[in-house]
Computed example of a mutant assay.
Amino acid sequence: MKTANYGIAIPMANEEEGFASFIESLKDALDNVPGGKVYLVVDRASTDSTPDLCSQLAQDDSRFVYVWAPENRNVVDAYLRGFKEAFHAGHDYIVEMDGGGSHNPAALPAFIRALQEGNQCAFGSRYINGGSLNDSPLKRRVLSKFGSFLARVLLGCPMRDVTSGYEAFTRPIMGKILSYSLRSKAHFYQTELRYLLRKSDWVEVPIHYVSPSPRVSQNAIKNSLQCLFYYTFRRWSGKKDIIR
């Protein structure tokens, strides 16, 4: 695959246990798609050795950048900080990936290829042909599928999977995302982006999603419902919330 100028934003919180295997997989993906740089965003949510592991990796491999962000209040702040680092570094494409092992770095070439083919956004999907949702707790399966169903019905969001956090954007679209005031603070963030970008040139990329954390806080669910009903009310009131 030809060289691409891209950055990957990855929040890293308490990833000590699976760190080595994830990074090895990520290095393989970077070798397959030359030109990438990884922004490892770490904040006070980490209570294990993750900060030290990320800092040492950045010293050993120039493709990795350690980003210490103690000001982060939630995971959305962590993603946005990674986006800002990649955007200000001048990358043509910016990828969002989870650092806990649920997103397989081997899918990276498909995301970069989708953008090189002219799409503005590439969204990871577990619910299209070629995608799958493996080893996930029942609670996460229900929340994911029901969330996607609600978004399609209430928001008119056309994607099959609106809750996956594996996605990629062109630089112009990322600039518009960063200038938009997002409302979500937790899991709904993925759905919010897809809703706002529904009129852009997008494509869904099949992904294999493995073993996410079974924990979803009540505050995260509450925030998701608040954001869902906010955008639903605005849509039914004729408001056009769009990034394109």
Rank of each mutant, 00 (worst) to 15 (best):
L197A: 00
K222Y: 13
S21I: 12
L225K: 02
S211P: 00
G175D: 05
R160P: 01
A186F: 15
G99D: 01
R81F: 05
S164C: 15
I8N: 01
L108K: 03
K240L: 15
R194G: 01
R140S: 14
G131R: 12
H91F: 15
E17A: 13
F169C: 06
D201V: 10
G118H: 13
A168N: 05
R215L: 13
M1P: 00
G7T: 14
T47G: 12
M97D: 08
V38G: 05
N134Q: 15
K2F: 08
L138Y: 14
A58C: 08
C157D: 12
L40C: 07
D28P: 00
G18S: 10
W202P: 10
D92Y: 04
R194C: 04
L143H: 02
M159I: 00
G99P: 02
V42Q: 07
V33M: 01
A20P: 03
E24L: 08
V65W: 04
G35M: 05
T232Y: 08
R235T: 08
Q120L: 03
A122V: 12
M12V: 10
D135G: 08
L150E: 04
V38S: 02
K145D: 01
S237K: 13
F111E: 01
Y166L: 14
E85G: 03
P109E: 06
K222E: 12
S62N: 12
L26H: 04
R183M: 04
V41G: 08
I10W: 07
A89G: 09
A168H: 07
R63E: 02
I207L: 09
D201L: 06
F149P: 01
D92C: 02
E71M: 11
D28G: 02
H88P: 00
C54L: 04
D135Q: 13
L30T: 05
C157I: 13
Y6D: 06
L196S: 05
A45Q: 14
L57K: 01
Q190G: 00
R73F: 10
E15S: 09
L182F: 12
D43L: 14
Y209N: 12
E167F: 06
S55W: 10
L154S: 03
A122Y: 09
